[in-house]
Computed example of a mutant assay.
Amino acid sequence: MERPPATFEVNGAALRRTRMHHGIGIHELADSAGISRSYLQRLETGTRRRMRPGTYAALRTALNVDDDRLLNEEPTEKR
Rank of each mutant, 00 (worst) to 15 (best):
L15G: 06
T76Q: 11
M1N: 10
D67H: 06
I35M: 14
M20G: 03
H22M: 11
P53E: 03
A62D: 01
V65I: 13
G12C: 10
N11H: 12
A58C: 02
E77N: 05
A62W: 00
R17L: 08
E44C: 09
R17P: 06
E74W: 05
E44T: 05
P5L: 06
R79D: 12
D67Q: 03
L63H: 03
R60H: 00
V10I: 15
L70G: 01
H22F: 13
L70H: 02
T76H: 04
D67R: 04
Q41E: 08
V10W: 05
P4W: 04
Y39M: 13
L15F: 12
V10E: 04
L40P: 14
E77C: 03
D68G: 01
F8P: 01
R42H: 15
G12H: 08
T18S: 14
R48N: 08
A14K: 13
A30K: 09
Q41D: 05
L71Q: 01
E77L: 13
H21R: 11
R79K: 09
T7A: 12
E28F: 05
M51Y: 05
R50H: 14
A30F: 10
H27A: 11
L71A: 00
D66N: 04
R17F: 12
P4T: 09
E9F: 02
D66W: 05
H21V: 12
A62R: 00
L70P: 02
T7Q: 15
F8S: 02
N72G: 00
E9C: 02
T18E: 14
M20N: 14
L59I: 03
L15A: 11
P53A: 07
A13H: 08
R60V: 00
P4S: 10
G12V: 08
E44S: 14
R3T: 09
H27P: 02
R48P: 03
D67N: 08
Y39F: 13
E9Q: 15
G46F: 07
P53F: 11
V65T: 02
L29K: 09
A58N: 05
R3W: 03
A62V: 02
Y39Q: 12
T76Y: 06
A6M: 11
I26A: 14
A30M: 11
I26F: 06
T47V: 12
A30C: 14
S32F: 04
D68M: 07
A33Y: 07
T61D: 05
G46V: 09
A62C: 04
V65E: 00
Q41R: 08
S36V: 13
D67V: 01
S36E: 12
P5C: 09
E74C: 03
A58Y: 02
Y56N: 03
L29W: 04
L70T: 00
D31T: 14
L71C: 02
F8T: 04
T47Y: 10
G34W: 13
E44D: 10
T7G: 07
R37H: 15
M1C: 05
R3S: 08
L43D: 06
I26M: 15
L43R: 12
